[in-house]
């Protein structure tokens, strides 16, 4: 290979990993939200956690093309693991998040060989079954999980031994912000690494990747485990910041909500999950304040409209806009 080709390849890789305007804008806007909406901190924290969960699904679906219909299994497992740890006397937050991630990642690893084996509609069905299985297990073990009333008695220690979790959710917000941002950086690293490129290769052409000497099964197993781990950490964050774990964290509806957030935001962009979650949770807050039934109706209509018109979600639309503005500023 000539030097020019190598240089071109290097430039392409660097360009691909460059931060876009939308990514920078989102993280600044999220931090600004703390100062602009001090009364809405709980909602903002939910958006960050929902975004992290949607991002974990994006790694799988947007980059690997593996649709999960039961991703809440890992979110909920992480939430229950962290919640149980804190309820049984170890309230240190950071180790709690790691524990939640570890539990969910372990389950993800256990199921990843199945996921690597099946393709197409069967992937949806297998993940659906995993989700239903965990929900059923949790609801049948009220002595452990609290059943329908939820897991209570979660008592958190101060963050880093310094910051108490306050009633207004200030500590909770910055805690969720920091963890979500760090995991976002880690996910960025992952998708721009050769490992992540191989994953994209699987999405684009599943049968050709093995011809490059890359094992699709291994790539999928790694992606599934990483995605499950991050989902578990997001769940753990929810458990620690709300100090209750409901069965709903494991529900089919939550899995579907993550898919919707991701599609609203834009698949395969990482930041799309966060933007979609913020939009979704904001809309739910506004619309269900009117009437919970209305919210479902509007959600249905929005989904239908989205599928018929906009592909690429909000990030797709925003990218078109920023590209257009950039062209206006630097006419060729």
């Amino acid at each position: 290979m000539s030097d020019i080709t190598l240089d071109l390849a290097r430039i392409m890789v660097v360009n691909r990993a460059r931060w876009t305007t939308i990514e920078v804008a989102f993280w600044i806007a999220a931090a600004a939200g703390y100062f602009l909406f001090p009364a809405k901190l709980v909602l903002l924290t939910q958006m960050l956690i929902g975004g992290l969960f949607a991002m974990s699904l994006d790694l799988l679906l947007g980059y690997g093309g593996i649709a999960s219909f039961g991703h809440a299994a890992f979110f909920g497992l992480g939430a229950y693991a962290a919640g149980l740890l804190a309820a049984h006397g170890w309230g240190e937050p950071l180790s709690g998040v790691l524990f939640g991630g570890l539990a969910a990642g372990g389950l993800g690893l256990a199921f990843s060989s199945v996921i690597a084996k099946v393709r197409g509609a069967a992937v949806l069905m297998v993940t659906l079954c995993i989700g239903l299985l965990l929900f059923e297990a949790a609801s049948r073990m009220p002595w452990l999980t609290g059943g329908d009333t939820g897991l209570q008695g979660i008592d958190m220690w101060p963050l880093l031994g310094l910051f108490e979790f306050d009633l207004f959710g200030r500590t909770a917000f910055w805690y969720a912000y920091a963890v979500a941002f760090l995991l976002y950086l880690a996910a960025r690293r992952y998708i721009h690494s050769p490992e992540g490129l191989a994953l994209k290769g699987i999405r684009e052409n599943h049968d050709r990747v093995p011809m490059l000497g890359v094992s699709t099964a291994r790539r999928k197993m790694i992606a599934f485990t990483i995605s499950a781990t991050i989902a578990g950490m997001a769940g753990a964050l929810l458990a620690q910041t709300t100090q209750i774990v409901a069965l709903e964290t494991l529900s089919f509806e939550r899995s579907v909500a993550a898919l919707i957030m991701l599609t609203v935001g834009g698949l395969g962009t990482l930041i799309g999950g966060f933007i979609g979650a913020a939009t979704f949770i904001w809309a739910r807050d506004v619309l269900s304040a009117l009437n919970p039934v209305y919210w479902m109706f509007w959600l249905g209509l929005i989904l239908i409209a989205l599928m018929l018109t906009a592909r690429g979600g909000l990030v797709g639309a925003l990218t078109l806009l920023t590209n257009y503005l950039a062209r206006e500023r630097h006419p060729r």
Partner: peptide
């Protein structure tokens, strides 16, 4: 996602 949209609208 399209058909789930229909489901939500139908429930409401």
């Amino acid at each position: 996602l399209l058909t789930i949209g229909v489901v939500y609208a139908a429930i409401a």
